Amino acid sequence: VSVELPAPSSWKKLFYPNKVGSVKKTEVVFVAPTGEEISNRKQLEQYLKSHPGNPAIAEFDWTTSG
């Protein structure tokens, strides 16, 4: 189950709350306009370098507050 949070234009930000008793931590995933899922800052940096014209990296908020 995921919750969609505010994201930069043409992107989606999905929040996957951890299940009770789960060892997996809460996860935030950005979905690029191409449909590619980005789950960490390093991936995001690589994606933005190879896909010019996207929002600046500073516009991506990895917190769950939206």
Rank of each mutant, 00 (worst) to 15 (best):
V1K: 11
V1W: 08
V1A: 11
S2W: 13
S2E: 08
V3I: 14
V3Y: 10
E4R: 08
L5P: 05
L5N: 05
L5C: 10
L5W: 07
P6T: 08
A7F: 06
A7L: 04
A7M: 04
A7P: 15
P8E: 05
P8G: 06
S9L: 10
S9M: 10
W11N: 04
W11Y: 01
W11T: 05
W11S: 04
W11F: 03
K12W: 04
K12P: 06
K12A: 05
K13H: 01
K13E: 05
K13V: 05
K13C: 06
K13W: 02
L14G: 02
L14I: 12
F15Q: 06
F15V: 14
F15W: 15
F15K: 03
F15I: 13
Y16H: 06
Y16N: 05
Y16Q: 06
P17A: 10
P17S: 11
N18A: 13
N18P: 10
K19P: 14
K19T: 12
K19C: 14
G21Q: 07
G21C: 10
S22C: 11
S22M: 10
V23Q: 14
V23L: 14
K24N: 15
K24G: 15
E27D: 11
E27F: 14
E27A: 15
V28D: 01
V28F: 05
V28M: 05
V28W: 03
V29T: 08
F30M: 02
F30G: 00
F30R: 01
A32S: 12
A32Y: 00
A32P: 03
P33D: 02
P33F: 02
T34H: 02
G35D: 02
E36G: 02
I38H: 01
I38T: 00
I38F: 07
S39W: 12
S39D: 09
S39P: 06
N40T: 11
N40R: 04
N40C: 07
N40V: 03
R41C: 12
K42S: 12
K42F: 14
K42M: 14
Q43W: 05
L44H: 00
L44T: 00
E45H: 09
E45Q: 10
Q46I: 11
Y47Q: 00
Y47F: 05
Y47V: 00
Y47K: 00
Y47A: 00
L48K: 01
L48V: 03
L48P: 00
L48S: 00
K49Q: 12
K49V: 10
K49F: 10
S50E: 13
S50D: 14
S50I: 09
S50L: 12
H51P: 00
H51G: 01
H51S: 03
H51T: 02
H51Q: 02
H51E: 02
H51K: 03
P52H: 05
G53C: 06
G53V: 05
G53H: 06
G53Y: 03
P55G: 05
P55I: 06
A56S: 13
A56I: 07
A56R: 08
A56P: 15
I57W: 06
I57D: 04
I57Y: 11
A58S: 15
A58Y: 12
E59F: 06
F60V: 01
F60A: 01
F60P: 00
F60G: 01
D61P: 02
D61M: 04
W62K: 01
T63K: 08
T63D: 10
T64Q: 07
T64K: 07
T64G: 09
T64N: 09
T64S: 10
G66I: 11
G66H: 11
G66E: 12
G66W: 08
